[in-house]
Amino acid sequence: MSEKKTNRRDFLFTATYAVGAVGVGATIWPMIDQMNPDASVKALASTEVDVSAVNPGKTITVLWRGKPVFIRRRTQDEIAEARSVKLEELKHPESDEDRAKDPEWLVMLGVCTHLGCVPLDQKGDYNGWFCPCHGSHYDTSGRIRKGPAPTNMEIPKYEFVNSNTIKIG
């Protein structure tokens, strides 16, 4: 066989394939992206919660974006316990000061970071939360201490609108 030379036909083939690939991609993308959260789902951005009735040592659970959010008013013992832990002991090192801006209030997504179950309050080896599905133990700051979950329970974006109201999202 003689050495192949690039000719006009090769160029036409390559150009056709390239345009074809872009066309196929542009056609498939809307089919894929339609499955992402739609505008109405994204619109449910924030929730305001009245926490005036929550006493120390109590947790309330509210629904935000279809997920439970734990709002716990912690006791002094729990705060002390959470703040005395050394960061080196943690699987996912985060200080309690960073997780709870106001030490009395812990606001976090009540979703186990393993496979998404809702952990149970005041259970487990670290007096915090325990996930019944696959046995993850969280401490009084919601940090993972034992079990298969890879990270601490997530802290959503929130702020105190006034001393009695928390706005999540």
């Binding site: 894929i32 959260p37 739609d38 789902v41 974006r65 279809g66 997920k67």
Partner: peptide
């Protein structure tokens, strides 16, 4: 993407 939202829901 699988959920079509931030949790398992109607979508």
């Amino acid at each position: 993407w699988l959920w079509g939202g931030y949790s398992v829901d109607n979508p």
